[in-house]
Design a protein around this nucleic acid. Structure first.
Lengths: 333, 333
DNA sequence: CATAAAAATGTAAGCGCTTTCAATTTAATT
DNA sequence: AATTAAATTGAAAGCGCTTACATTTTTATG
């Protein structure tokens, strides 16, 4: 592989000049630029990124921490990030935190030890203080779906409450008034926000919401089934069921069907996230789209702007949209 | 950040000695090792991986090319690879090829330009000649689900034919004799292998297989629905349907249900791959497990052995197992 | 034209590590 | 104790690039 030295020889200029045309950061006369470019072409030269990194103390790589690599949700997020960063010639390093504080921390440290220029992270378990402390370090960190006041301009998030609201509003608009809710875990902020949206929509419609129509799962499919059972055991009836995510919606649908209820004719269901399998369910799941891919892309753009001097338009706040499919129909007595 | 130089000062030894204890590749007396280790601890020293790479011309990173980052199948594969490589402190760089020859090539070049020590790739479109040529280059490449004679010992693959055979055998064992098959695209080798397994199982059971019970899709869910329609339009009846992958199985199930057929009571269905959504389907899909996660892990182990001198046990060949769930039942007249 | 200012280019010192080869210390042997 | 072999250690030359600073060339100005 040709080195910058050979290029400089071939073009009859100095190392520094070649470096300048590579990096386009200092002015080089058109004539010499051409000579150099021709030489690079002739030699099939490609800069050694490692040497560039060492000399410039920029690794041109950004670390990304997700909970799981094999999840439709994080898949979309990774895809959004990778597309944007690769277009800019940056390298992306993914690591998985497996929803464990210890592993999340190790992953962050692994990423840092590889001299990432920035970190984009979506973590559940890492305490705020640690993030805080990290954000004061040399490497800028960007948060997805988590907002710390002290670093607001490096957080991108979605309005979960609005999502819960829109799901509920849609059920109400379709004539449902007895609407049950399977919420995510109470200690998760997003779960509580979604639930608040549900409550708000009901209140707004003048419907007293009834605590007995709310149960709490853990976002897993199994818990969706379990919660459904809890719900039907209660005296209170309902014609629509809103779930804190698509997994639980799937579990609830299965359980309901096993108990002989016809979806959507006997019961309407709405999920949340618009995970890729939502359309594989039967009936196809009406749900709230979580624009996680776009959010990932935005985080990437923020990194590109802040760290590499690009000028992308930035959006830090996203609103979830309703995706109408087949699991909810008009309420009929 | 402390450098190796400061460590050497603190320990009262030379740079070379510190380097030796870091890399554990040359003998250092116990006494000096201790001194150095203490110094590293005191200074919170961590080697600069970039400098290490430049000096050793090893980047300690391996590139991985998948078709999509947001796919359950590749998700599992990536997860298997990442787990194994990170345990070894190696960095993984993922790139997506999007099933396009051009992008696959660009991705490979991107990975190469980042000086990966090895490449693990799962590509569909890249022609054999290019892979061939690549494999003759400096950077070793490892193939998943594709076997080139010239580099057999760097390929890991699964017996697709056996998978098709086992699916079909299971249907036969459950009394089905009229078994339809929705195959993947004819130009894909794995699709044809799976189909061959189907044919072999039938032949072995003394059943003439009937070409009119075989239709070809493109592995997408939509094509599963379409193929199902084609199948029922034909005069030939069938009590079981085997699909070349889970997506098409899902499509077929949907279409069948829309036409009023009850699965599995009227029709049994088997998929292939055991994608994560297979258990979200209703009824839960009986399918053939594709151990893609393990295969990824194995590819990682091979890299670790060949490139970094580890000694992992290697398995290059995998057999797919049947996963019994609820979409196939005993045949009853 | 002479001169100063601006633009372009070159020189050379690192970036933090690995590794070859030589020098030194230690252990083994007679 | 002298000699030799083996085991440790150190010195120094890179790895391929960036960049501060110096130098040269070009352009502008009076």
């Amino acid at each position: 592989m040709a080195t910058i030295y050979e290029v400089s020889k071939a073009a009859g200029v100095s190392l520094a000049t070649v470096s300048r045309v590579i990096n386009k950061n200092a002015v080089v006369s058109a004539k010499t630029r051409e000579k150099v470019e021709q030489a690079m072409l002739d030699l099939g030269y490609r800069p050694n990124t490692i040497a560039q990194s060492l000399a410039s103390s920029k690794s041109n790589s950004v670390g990304v921490l997700v909970s799981e690599l094999d999840s439709p949700f994080f898949g979309e997020m990774m895809s959004g990030i990778e597309t944007e960063l690769r277009r800019a010639g940056k390298q992306v390093i993914f690591a998985a935190g497996h929803n464990t504080e210890k592993i999340e921390k190790e992953s962050i440290e692994f990423l840092l030890s590889r001299f990432c220029d920035a970190l984009i992270i979506h973590v559940e378990e890492t305490p705020e203080e640690y993030l805080q402390q990290l954000s004061e370090g040399k490497v800028p960190i960007y948060l997805i779906n988590r907002v710390l006041d002290s670093m607001k301009n490096r957080c991108v998030h979605m309005n979960n409450e609005l999502g819960g609201y829109r799901a509920t509003k849609f059920a109400l608009d379709n004539g449902h008034t007895q609407i049950a809710y399977i919420a995510g875990p109470q200690q998760k902020e997003d779960a509580m926000e979604r639930l608040r949206g549900y409550q708000q929509a009901l209140t707004e419609s003048g419907i007293d919401f009834d605590d007995s129509l709310i149960v709490y799962g853990d976002y897993s499919e199994q818990s969706g089934s379990d919660c459904y059972k809890q719900l039907v055991d209660k005296p209170k009836k309902f014609s629509a069921l809103i779930c804190g995510n698509d997994e639980m919606a799937s579990g609830a649908m299965k359980q309901a069907r096993d108990e002989g209820v016809d979806i959507p004719n006997d019961l309407s269901i709405i999920g949340f996230d618009n995970t890729s399998f939502a359309q594989y369910l039967y009936p196809q799941l009406t749900t709230i789209d979580n624009p996680i891919g776009q959010m990932g892309q935005m985080a990437a753009c923020m990194v590109l702007n802040d760290v590499y001097g690009h000028k992308h338009a930035i959006q830090r706040y996203f609103e979830p949209e309703l995706v109408k499919r087949k699991s909810l129909i008009q309420y009929t007595e």
